[in-house]
Design a protein around this nucleic acid. Structure first.
Length: 420
RNA sequence: GUGAGCAUAGCUCAGUUGGUUAGAGCAUCUGGUUGUGGCCCAGAAGGUCAUGGGUUCAAGUCCCAUUGCUCACCCCA
């Protein structure tokens, strides 16, 4: 048997209502905040991600689905969306049409990691990017939008964590300090952290190794060494969040794994899912547009994992099971009428009714059982004496009452069904 | 990439210290008197017990390998 490849999942019809519900909430909130949807291709030239996300990041160095096409171009299935959105912004010079562009997206992403609860190789994210302004209010707005969506879904058990990485220069200065501190404890660091000492020293804060955590407890914190401008920026973000009534925690150790972040970073975690508890994350990326050969304009954004969010919803039992409304099931009283039933169903569907019929020439009893199973509001009997006399027999399933409807009287049939 | 656990019907699961023809519930299908649903009742269909080896008189059950899934690490959403 051929099965879906590791880390991919079919979303079956029974799960679709949950996805539709999530998408509806997402689009409505983005619409309120005037973010415009953007859709970019599923794959890009590999170098976009290599340069946008950073060669040394885990995503680029070991998780991308990269292949060459027939003309030997290296292509990659998108592992995240920000680089693609920025590419599109630059390519179409959208920054010239308006100084601030606010985008949102809903799209599959691809990363070759070991699957786990809340982690797939093809997964879905929604997210937003606000590009063109360095206003700290936009940092706050991005966090507020993300939080609002999760709240509107009905999620509880959320924690917003924020941090500031400062400007690249102040970060470099801080890294020096951190290096000086860590060199003293280098021998005691875990192997993984020793590697990070070279590649991305800030990530040592993320380590779950006990020794590492002990060491890092006394390490200097980036927040304490921020330049004045970043500090002021961060203060304004916090103030805006307080005014908006968003509860948050400052997490000085929150270091995001993508190279492009500057200043604000944030994450919203949920205690309702497994170990992969970050429902969404994001931050400011003031150097990225320029890095990708665009103008030197700032941006801020976030991405949210839809599978994780749905998992959290499921665990918090907040997904409403809306019953599928079903208007009419048409039955053939005897087999001579199956063609008439089929034609009739088509006609009634053109009146915007949801209509089903039997495709197995089954007994009347079986057909009626089917009508009941589908929760049809009405069953229409076609055939027999009624038909001979110019009538259909309409049965209301909820109370079992039946009445004749003249075959020619479409309006009556349709209006009875619609009005119930 | 590392580690642990699991694999029996479409689904959720029983299956005793290894011992006849591998079971249940739900779901599916048929019937319960002429042309009528739900509840109920009766019946049917559905399994190479993940795959391949091994031990044994005898393997769903014990051993090994492979594959897959799940969870965790790593990292991230």
């Amino acid at each position: 048997m051929i099965k879906a490849v590791t880390g991919t999942k079919d979303i079956l019809p029974e799960e679709i209502p949950n996805w539709k519900f999530l998408e509806k909430v997402v689009t409505s909130v983005f619409d309120n905040y005037n973010y415009k949807e953007i859709r970019t291709p599923i794959f890009e030239e590999t170098k976009l991600f290599a340069r946008g996300i950073g060669e040394s990041t885990d995503i680029v160095s070991k998780e991308m689905y990269t292949f060459t096409d027939r003309s030997n171009t290296s292509l990659t299935l998108k592992p995240e969306m920000t680089a693609s959105v920025v590419r599109a912004l630059i390519e179409h010079a959208l920054y010239k049409k308006q100084s601030l562009n606010k985008f949102y997206y809903i799209s599959p992403m691809f990363r070759q990691e070991r699957p786990q609860a809340g982690r797939l190789r093809q997964f879905h994210q929604f997210g937003a990017e606000a590009i063109g302004s360095n206003n700290p209010l936009l940092d706050a707005e991005i966090i507020i939008v993300a939080y609002t969506i999760l709240k509107k879904l009905g999620l509880k058990n959320l924690t917003v964590k924020i941090n500031s990485l400062g400007l690249p220069e102040s970060r470099e200065n801080y890294k020096k300090l951190l290096r000086e501190y860590l060199i003293k404890h280098f021998d005691k660091l875990s192997n993984e952290s020793k590697k990070r000492f070279q590649t991305n020293i800030l990530r040592i804060f993320d380590s779950k190794d006990e020794q590492d955590i002990m060491i890092m407890q006394n390490a200097p914190l980036l927040l304490e060494y921020l330049d004045n401008e970043s500090l002021e920026h961060f203060e304004k973000v916090k103030k805006a969040l307080v005014n908006a009534g968003i509860p948050f925690e400052i997490e000085p150790k929150l270091v995001r794994g993508l190279d492009y972040y500057t200043n604000t970073t944030f994450e919203i975690i949920s205690s309702s899912v497994g170990a992969q508890n970050a429902l969404c994350g994001g931050g400011r990326y003031n150097g990225l547009v320029k890095e990708l050969e665009g103008p030197d304009i700032p941006g801020v954004g976030f991405a949210a994992g839809m599978e994780r969010i749905l998992l959290a919803c499921e665990n918090e039992k907040i997904l409403s099971l809306e019953e599928d409304k079903f208007d009419l099931y048409i039955l053939a009283i005897d087999k001579d009428f199956v063609d008439i039933v089929f034609d009739l169903a088509i006609k009634l569907r053109n009146f915007d009714l949801k209509v089903e019929l039997d495709y197995f020439n089954r007994s009347l009893k079986a057909q009626l059982r089917e009508a009941n199973k589908l929760k049809a509001k009405f069953a229409l009997f076609v055939g027999g004496d009624e038909f001979k006399n110019g009538f259909y027999l309409l049965k209301k399933m909820s109370d079992g009452t039946q009445f004749n409807i003249p075959i020619s009287d479409w309006n009556k049939l349709v209006s009875i069904i619609k009005e119930s």
